[in-house]
Simulated assay, not measured.
Amino acid sequence: MHPLPQLESYAIRTFEIDCNQQLTIPALVRLMQETAMQQVLELNISVWDLEQYSLAWVLIRKRIEIERLPMLGEKISIHSYPTGADRVFTYRDFRVYDEAGQQIATAATTWLLMNLQTRQMSRIPAELLARFSGYFPPVEMALPYALDSLPPMEQAFTSRNYVVGWYDLDFLKHLNNVHFVKWMLEALPEETLAKQQIRRMDLLFLAEGNLHDRIDAQFQQIDEATYLHQLVRQEDKKVLATGRTIWV
């Protein structure tokens, strides 16, 4: 089979921008998520298709690289497609293009299947793998897998505190990954968010966030361009996610 890229086009709307009229990173992640969702629905491998197996897709790693963020009213297209799989992991790429066809952002993601009864990772059933493995592109067309480890945070500074609310949950009743991104970034100094441009964001998702969880957003500045991030549940000090961002 040939690759099956999912192509969705969007015009950047007012509720997706910041004070500089640029698309925000959380909004970009949400658009990527929607693009992927349309494809898994088409391939019959969505969360609802997996209910009969008591399985669900879980995002565990995301690496976003940004050349520039589109502006209010600008039209973009997002291409997304699965790029590979092994016993327990699957990989999906995203490429964002402007109206001129220039690539302005990419994301490489890693997913696993979780058994909803045991809460443990599960091997991919052969019949599910067969629904999308034939569409994997040649290796040279795929982004490098996000496999490198993130450095530990040695001096965490708690900047924000959050309580997971009903509208923060996804369709599995877990904290939506868009909020992981948003809460990590909101912890940073206002001057960084207002005056610098993000070029890269690496995320490692370690545990679920649930309704009413109290979460601390922490960061550590490494140098003028680099921050480390983590979200920590107050009740048990469990680290739910770690991250690293690079700015210019």
Rank of each mutant, 00 (worst) to 15 (best):
N20L: 03
K173M: 11
N177A: 06
L175F: 12
I25K: 14
E186T: 03
G73I: 02
V232Y: 02
M71H: 12
L59T: 15
Y162K: 09
D216Y: 07
R131H: 10
Q33L: 07
W247R: 10
I45T: 08
D98V: 06
A105R: 00
K195R: 08
L211A: 05
P3T: 09
T242K: 02
V58T: 15
R30N: 10
M201K: 04
I246P: 00
L116N: 04
L116H: 09
K238Q: 15
E208L: 04
S77W: 13
C19G: 15
I78V: 06
E235S: 02
A56R: 13
N20H: 14
K237V: 01
L59N: 14
L23E: 00
H179Q: 13
L69Y: 06
F136S: 03
F132V: 03
S9D: 02
H179K: 13
D213L: 11
Y167M: 06
M114N: 02
D216A: 08
L211T: 10
E140M: 15
A241P: 01
L31M: 14
F157D: 00
E34H: 09
L206D: 06
A56L: 06
E154D: 13
T106G: 05
L211I: 12
T245E: 00
G101H: 02
Y145T: 13
Q155T: 06
D202K: 09
N177D: 07
I78F: 04
R119K: 14
K75N: 07
V40A: 03
Q39P: 12
I78D: 04
P125Q: 11
A126D: 15
F136A: 13
P125W: 15
W166P: 04
T106K: 08
L113A: 04
Y162W: 08
N115A: 03
R123E: 14
H179G: 00
A194T: 06
H179Y: 11
T109P: 02
P70D: 05
T118H: 08
V232Q: 05
N177G: 10
Q117T: 08
E51R: 15
E140Q: 15
V96Q: 03
D93I: 03
L116A: 02
D223L: 01
D86S: 13
V29G: 05
E190P: 02
L50I: 05
P5L: 13
W183E: 01
P189Q: 09
V47T: 11
K195T: 14
E235K: 06
L203K: 06
P26R: 10
L55T: 15
T106W: 01
T192R: 01
Q230W: 10
I76A: 03
D213A: 03
K62N: 04
E140W: 03
Q196Y: 13
D168T: 08
L150V: 02
V164E: 01
V47H: 15
L112R: 14
P144R: 05
L228N: 07
D49H: 13
T24M: 10
V164L: 09
A105L: 04
R199L: 04
L211C: 11
G101A: 02
